[in-house]
Amino acid sequence: MLKILKYSFYDLMRSRWSYVYFAFYLLLGVVLLFLNNDLSKAVITLMNVIIVLVPLIGTIFGVMYYYNSKEFTELLLAQPLKRSSIFLGQYLGVAISLSMSLVLGLGLPFVFYGLFKSSAIWDFSLLLITGTFLTFIFTALAFNIALSNENRIKGFGYAILLWLFLAIIYDGIFLMSLILFEDYPLDKLSLFGTMLNPIDLSRTLILLKLDISALLGYTGAVFKQFFGTSFGLVVSFVALLLWILLPVSRMIFKSKRKDF
């Protein structure tokens, strides 16, 4: 598995896309800092970017990589190798190289700008951690979609639909249901609702840092326990881990049974 991981990783490192991705984040970091002159404001803007763009790039890139390396995968399958190690290796290769582009691309300009001396360092590292989580989650989801769809166009379609659903439509439905059922106690439902969507989940994690004073304005005991203590942080991280483990295990399960 490590060999395949290494191969995928180096293959991606040499590919143009990783550089484009890296350059994009580098540029974003530099421009944000140049325009804002303020680390804490840049962190807020960055949150929007990470929550929207990282999942999108993760899904598209994952699907693209799977379809592009299909012939190579079939070649590998002819060798005496475990299927799980082939797919896991490829998945980790993609996810790690994407996360590296993200962390380096955003990290470098901020470090040069004097991040270590700033109080925003914790907010910023939380951003990078959730960004990495999101990359792993959405690459895994993308591999799942690609494994289940032989047709490339269909695969891409589903991938974009998945992103659109989780990033925007889900919140719309969520908001509507909260407003519709406003007569009922909703705090458990609303916390549960965020757990079901990795984008919402990582947003909540960042909110815990940035908007804690607003969040504590709400009167629910469940909310208070969730936001007021480190309980919320722990639960969110566990849920994020689950969001990686479930798609990955489905990917392995599916790949073992798939007829290539």
């Binding site: 925007i168 919140d171 909260l178 407003i179 406003e182 909703l186 919402d200 960042i206 304005g217 009167t219």
Partner: peptide, 20 residues
């Protein structure tokens, strides 16, 4: 305005849908 009406919606703060 929405949060005033249904306080639980605060959990959607800074979501892309809300920005739209």
């Amino acid at each position: 305005y929405i949060v005033n009406r249904t306080p639980e919606t605060i959990i959607l703060l800074r979501s892309l849908f809300i920005d739209i």
